[in-house]
Simulated assay, not measured.
Amino acid sequence: MGFLRKFLAWLMVPVLCLVGLVICLARPFNPDNTRIVGRMLAVVGRWVLGMERPLSGRDNLPWDRRTVIIANHQHNEDLFVFGDLVPPRTVTIGKSALIWAPVFGQVYWLAGNVLINRARSHKAVAVMQTTSDAITRENKGLWIFPEGTRSHGLELGRFKKGAFHAAVTSGAPITMICAGVYRGLCNGPAGRHEPVAVRVLPPVETKGLGIDDIPRLMEQCRQQMEETIEALSY
């Protein structure tokens, strides 16, 4: 039963992305496209999977100000865990290879998200600089997985500097969203997906910080997230 739930959940992704494609073609690169499509995918996906997602710290979600959001990245199911938590006018940072994913990749691009080729680090830095400028000029928020890859339910990986560079150079606060460790398992006769607890932490202000402060900021945020993930997991 669990396998069937997962199959149906991922089967509905391209179907809903076709709906999202219509929205994105009607208003290409609108920064609210990501929020609308993300909500559709998360709400329907959790319903199909039978996944419960206890959420604490909802009041810390930045609905009225632009921030850089960082979250831990465990599995592909993170799409269903986090998708409806994207605030207004927030875009995400993803790898350029996503553009080749049928339907999803085109929606991701047309939704105004930023694609980075990690093999060309000098260009990735330039993109992050442009993105940090957009926070100020275009009043956008950013959602980034600072580990840069999935942990598959293992310990929190090392953070990359991009999110913190964007936050410090734009003066935007950092908001951390943490999901407890999960393995993607399905339990019981109904095959319901295991619950995934999520907590939104208070924003960390970056005004007055400089480039030299980034390593300390990274360590501070990583430690807070690590402690929170551990508390949510046991």
Rank of each mutant, 00 (worst) to 15 (best):
P14S: 03
R58A: 14
I99Y: 13
V13M: 02
F80I: 02
G83V: 01
L55W: 05
A134K: 15
H122F: 00
Y234R: 14
S121E: 11
T175V: 03
A172C: 09
K207E: 13
A167C: 06
A71E: 08
N72E: 12
M1A: 12
L21H: 02
T228Y: 06
L18H: 01
K161E: 11
V107F: 07
R35A: 14
W10L: 07
H73W: 12
F104M: 04
L49M: 11
A111M: 13
T136S: 11
G94S: 14
N33V: 04
F80A: 00
T228C: 15
H75L: 15
C221R: 01
N72Y: 10
E77C: 10
R183T: 03
K140D: 04
L232A: 05
I177V: 08
G191D: 03
K207C: 08
G112Q: 06
K207H: 12
S56H: 13
L61C: 08
M176K: 08
V204N: 04
H73D: 05
Q223K: 15
R89A: 12
A9D: 08
P195G: 13
P173V: 12
L25V: 01
W47N: 09
P189C: 10
H73N: 04
A119R: 15
F29W: 14
R150Y: 13
F164L: 12
E227W: 02
T92S: 14
N72W: 09
S170G: 07
R89I: 09
N117A: 13
A124K: 05
P14K: 03
G153R: 06
P146Q: 06
G157Q: 15
S121W: 14
I69W: 08
E138K: 13
V181S: 06
I69P: 09
T92L: 12
P173C: 13
N33E: 01
L110C: 11
C17A: 11
P202L: 07
F104D: 03
D59S: 14
E147K: 06
G210Q: 13
V196K: 00
L217P: 00
V127D: 14
T206L: 00
A71Y: 08
L154S: 11
G112S: 04
K140Y: 11
L85P: 06
R150Q: 07
R66H: 14
R158K: 15
G162W: 05
Y108H: 04
V37S: 02
E219Y: 04
G57Q: 03
P146I: 02
W47K: 13
E77T: 11
G188W: 08
L79E: 04
L85E: 10
C221F: 06
N72L: 10
M128N: 03
D59I: 14
R5H: 04
I36D: 05
R183I: 01
G191S: 07
D213E: 02
G112P: 05
H165L: 13
G57S: 06
A172V: 10
L16H: 05
G83T: 05
K140W: 09
R118E: 02
E138P: 05
A111N: 10
L21V: 03
F80D: 00
V200C: 10
G191I: 07
K123G: 07
N139E: 12
P88Y: 12
V125C: 00
R150K: 12
R150T: 12
R120S: 09
L209T: 09
L156K: 06
